[in-house]
Design a protein around this nucleic acid. Structure first.
Lengths: 110, 110
DNA sequence: ATGAAACTGAAGTAGATACTTCACTAATGG
DNA sequence: CCATTAGTGAAGTATCTACTTCAGTTTCAT
């Protein structure tokens, strides 16, 4: 991964999770590691399609994969989640700062 | 909003935030409420485009808007964030359960 | 009253993207 | 060894989607 909090990385993470099939893959993987075909069977799509999704998830830092023999094992990479939570936290803090200023304003005597 | 944690709602939230322009709008709104044209000017796109983005953000429960006179004021709706964090939290817990089971396995004498 | 400002609605378009199929390589089991 | 299993790569397609333009409507200021 290039830079955990970079604009490009945030972009990749949100784009990756924007697709329902990819989220389904993430949900499946949070239960434990799976092979590519193991992920493909419950979703009614081709092995090729799943492999394409996995590449996008991997580039977003949401999954790690390693190939031993002919089977590629996929598992969740927490790095992607970190990027996600960091973005949310940033919005939350600016939002709270704003509410604090509103509180100050309302508390002003004049 | 129909159902805060529903599949459809999660879908709307992630799809909404999957677009960089919409995220830019959210970032701007976390600084404080803005009008539609106030949001449009720094982004170099049409007023119409921004209005379309706002509709998507609103349906996702990420933004609330109200129109007084001829100006529509937009502000962040925390509900969308809640949906988002809920999804992440769920993945995290299943992931941790999995790691706990791994710990148990490694701790087994045999 | 009139012109500008702030939107709204409909319709079109160019590019993205989620799939597919087909052809291929590499590992594994009997 | 041979058939099967697991995955890769390239290429095509149909749909989606982010934008645009244009033609309204309403509100506000002068």
């Amino acid at each position: 991964m290039t830079d955990p909090g970079s604009q490009a990385q945030v972009d990749r993470v949100f784009h990756a999770l924007g697709d329902p099939t990819r989220r389904a893959i993430m949900e499946r993987l949070s239960e434990g590691p799976r092979s590519v075909s193991g992920l493909a069977s419950p979703l009614s799509i081709t092995l090729t399609a799943v492999a394409q999704h996995l590449q996008i998830l991997e580039e977003a830092g949401l999954v790690r994969t390693e190939k031993t023999g002919r089977v590629r094992t996929c598992r969740i990479d927490p790095a992607g989640f970190a990027t996600l939570e960091q973005w949310i936290a940033q919005r939350r803090t600016t939002l709270e700062r704003q509410l604090d200023r509103l509180g100050d304003f309302l508390a002003e005597p004049d």
